[in-house]
Design a protein around this nucleic acid. Structure first.
Length: 415
RNA sequence: GUGGGUGUAGCUCAGCUGGUUAGAGCGUCAGAUUGUGAUUCUGAAUGUCGCGGGUUCGAAUCCCGUCACUCACCCCA
């Protein structure tokens, strides 16, 4: 058992080989897909002014009120480790004025939320996200959703399901809350106490409650879209229609709710079976964020990398499948060969060959054992007699055969 | 923040209702084989039994606290 002094802090973890091979695959394929859709990367600071998140996410949201890592710097400024990526991206866009008014950007990196860890929920977790800036346009929403599904397919997660809804315009809000309350009120007494409180504080949250009693009553209530204006409904219809034309079949799920205040119109979630309670791989939506005097409109999504990995692993994918090809190993017999082999090692590397060698003149047996452990398919053995003849022994670890070759032939065989 | 489960060697775990020096498998290292790995055989090393306190003649085992891991609620990606 590792002593606690060597462990990372609660809810955070080291990501090392072989897992890091899988992380690299995920990031590489994401970059490839983003490039095809003409999105470019933005790397924003991980630490931001606390007020950025309060203003953009909403000062009453759970993320802001109880999940942020906030600290004061030496000047007494309040800073927060970013709990999500959109706020920083939008801050960047707002600073750029016209130049970034139609930016298409993506980001990837760590996010921080101080919650109780569980399956699919770390305190430091990683997101890959995109933001397509621009005035509301249902075609843009559809394009971003298509991009997201393309990316999921590239990762091998074509079986992920998308739940789509609209939370409408700010003007719809009052009608939705009222309509929902009126629909539920007659049966309010049937709800558990906690749900009754939420009826007052945040009715929308009842929509995605896991409580059976709540679900029964919600199921009988009219869908939220019925309380929304014609414009909102037309917007949603166009998104769905556009997706259908792109051969993407989505079901509208009117019980989908989002926890951040900046969303307007389209919102969605990507869920995957076999993930446990935290079954959302990704969340996304259209937003309007006020930064200073500017309102920035856009549509985007964020994918939880840890959850993507969990979904892949549930499907039998393992990180070792993405390990780099095995290296060539060099065995030296005697000090003279050790010195020469160091030169050979660097030369091979400069020619693009991944190779490794034992840096001491240990016994052959020990060196061969290590060569075997590194997974080397080929081993170069060189001692005094090879040095004298100017040749190399090249051993194939698969079948145990070996041959003597000169330098040009060695290079031909290895590169 | 609330609740459940779990902490014994590098890893996976065993250790019966408290009883002598805490075990196994895998892994690691070495030898058999002084210039050849993986296989085989032989041998070796490694533990503050998560940590702290209590009960007891005696605690890995029982009690309390604490920390960590884990799952769920909540929330979200």
């Amino acid at each position: 058992m590792a002593s606690s002094q060597f462990q990372p802090i609660q809810g955070m973890s080291d990501i090392a080989a072989p897992d890091s091979f899988l992380w690299q695959m995920i990031e590489e394929r994401a970059r490839d897909i983003f490039t095809r859709y003409c999105f470019s990367e933005v790397r924003t600071p991980i630490l931001e002014k606390t007020e950025l998140f309060i203003h953009s996410l909403g000062d009453t949201t759970d993320v802001v009120t109880k999940e942020m890592y906030t600290l004061e710097d030496r000047g007494g400024r309040k800073l927060t480790l970013r709990p999500e990526g959109t706020a920083s991206a939008i801050r960047y866009v707002a600073a750029g004025g016209d130049k970034t008014a139609s930016a298409r950007i993506y980001y990837m990196g760590p996010m921080f939320r101080c919650e109780r860890p569980q399956a699919g929920r770390k305190r430091q977790f990683h997101q890959i996200g995109v933001e397509a800036i621009g005035a509301p346009n249902p075609l843009a929403d559809a394009e971003v959703i298509a991009l997201q599904l393309h990316l999921l397919a590239a990762w091998g997660l074509a079986d992920a399901k998308i739940r789509l809804n609209t939370i409408g315009l700010p003007e719809d809000r009052a009608a939705v809350l009222n309509g929902l309350r009126e629909a539920i009120r007659p049966r309010l007494h049937e709800l558990p106490e906690e749900a009754q409180q939420r009826f007052e504080t945040n009715v929308l949250r009842l929509l995605d409650s896991k409580d059976e009693a709540v679900q029964k009553i919600i199921g009988a209530a009219p869908p939220v879209t019925e309380f929304m204006c014609a414009e909102t409904r037309a917007y949603l219809d166009t998104v769905v229609e556009t997706l259908r034309n792109l051969d993407i079949d989505v079901e509208v799920d009117t019980s989908l709710v989002r926890g951040l205040d900046y969303y307007v119109h389209t919102v969605w979630e990507v869920v995957h079976g076999g993930l446990g309670a935290q079954n959302a791989l990704a969340g996304g939506g259209r937003y309007c964020i006020q930064i200073g005097k500017n309102a920035v409109n856009g549509v985007g999504f964020a994918m939880g990398v840890e959850r993507v990995i969990a979904a892949l692993e549930a499907g039998g994918i393992s990180a070792v499948q993405f390990a780099p090809p095995p290296p060539v190993f060099i065995v030296s017999l005697g000090e003279a060969a050790l010195k020469e082999n160091l030169l050979l090692l660097q030369m091979l590397r400069k020619h693009g060959v991944a190779c490794e060698m034992e840096l001491s003149a240990r016994k052959v047996q020990a060196q061969m054992r290590r060569a075997n452990k590194t997974g080397a398919r080929q081993v170069i053995i060189r001692g005094d007699s090879e040095l004298e003849k100017g040749i190399f022994v090249l051993k194939n670890m698969g079948d145990g055969t070996q041959s003597e070759v000169d330098l040009p032939e060695l290079m031909k065989l290895l590169t």
